[in-house]
């Protein structure tokens, strides 16, 4: 469904991604693993064209999306949940969701506000609070809910477990499972191996912007040396 083909991305002169290639198949949850600074977030941003790869090609649903403006990529059904959440702090929860709203899309669940409040009950209670009044966990839920309002068929989840309490992590695991059962494809970047193992079908490990491993979780578990070399303990 998503094909990343030898992309190279730069921040100024820093070469962050080097000939990175991998695929994500429809209906799968793929974990993108790696240490801090390995290039996980840059990969996500490159897919959304928030960082423009200078070389390489990205195709989504057989369409070349390299060089497209971000909003057109989102309109194709790619939802992006940024690592730093980036909720609109001056807007209420309901207004945040309103920004994410897109017309229904064929082949994807059409989310309503109420469905999302069922999925994230905490948000329902705080629907008229401003973003800045929310806790870190609530903000994390809001940013996911906001992206789901766009009825995506594919979600890029950038480090959803970062900086949130363990109970929230458990809740996230449940939510991702639920999204998967509804047919959503997910690319998830993580440092938390436990979290990744709980939700994903396969994993891609990157280090210094290069791919070190690409395979199922069973394959990864059978190679502890890879895990030890490229992932934090």
């Amino acid at each position: 469904m998503l094909r990343i083909d030898a992309i190279n991305s730069f921040y100024g002169k820093a070469h962050v991604l080097r000939d990175l290639s991998f695929n994500v198949c429809k209906g799968h949850v793929v974990a993108l693993l790696g240490r801090n600074g390995a290039g996980k977030s840059t990969t996500m941003k490159s897919i959304m064209q928030l960082v423009r790869p200078s070389l390489g090609k990205i195709t989504f649903k057989d369409e070349d999306i390299t060089g497209l403006p971000s909003h057109q990529i989102a309109k194709l059904g790619l939802g992006y949940v940024p690592e730093d959440r980036r909720i609109f702090t001056d807007l209420t929860v309901v207004e945040n969701l309103l920004v994410g709203r897109q017309p229904p899309r064929e082949g994807a669940v059409t989310w309503s506000q109420e469905m999302l409040f069922d999925l994230f009950p905490n948000l329902a209670e705080r629907r008229n609070n401003r973003g800045k009044a929310l806790s870190g966990g609530e903000q994390q839920m809001l940013t996911i809910a906001r992206t789901l309002m766009g009825n995506p068929s594919f979600v890029l989840l950038d480090e959803p477990s970062e900086g949130v309490a363990p109970v929230i992590i458990e809740q996230m695991i449940k939510v991702i499972g639920q999204l998967k059962s509804e047919g959503l494809t997910v690319l998830l970047s993580e440092q938390n191996l436990h979290f990744a193992q709980a939700v994903s079908d396969s994993a891609v490990i990157i280090e210094s912007g290069m791919k070190m491993f690409d395979g199922t979780l069973e394959a990864l578990n059978s190679k502890p040396e890879i895990r030890d070399a490229y992932l934090a303990a």
Binding site: S70, Y80, P82, R86, F88, D90, L91, E95, N96, G100
Partner: peptide
């Protein structure tokens, strides 16, 4: 109002 705060994110939301 959302764009006043973070226009890149607004764009990423379609």
């Amino acid at each position: 109002r959302a764009a006043t705060q973070d226009r890149e994110m607004v764009s990423a939301l379609g």
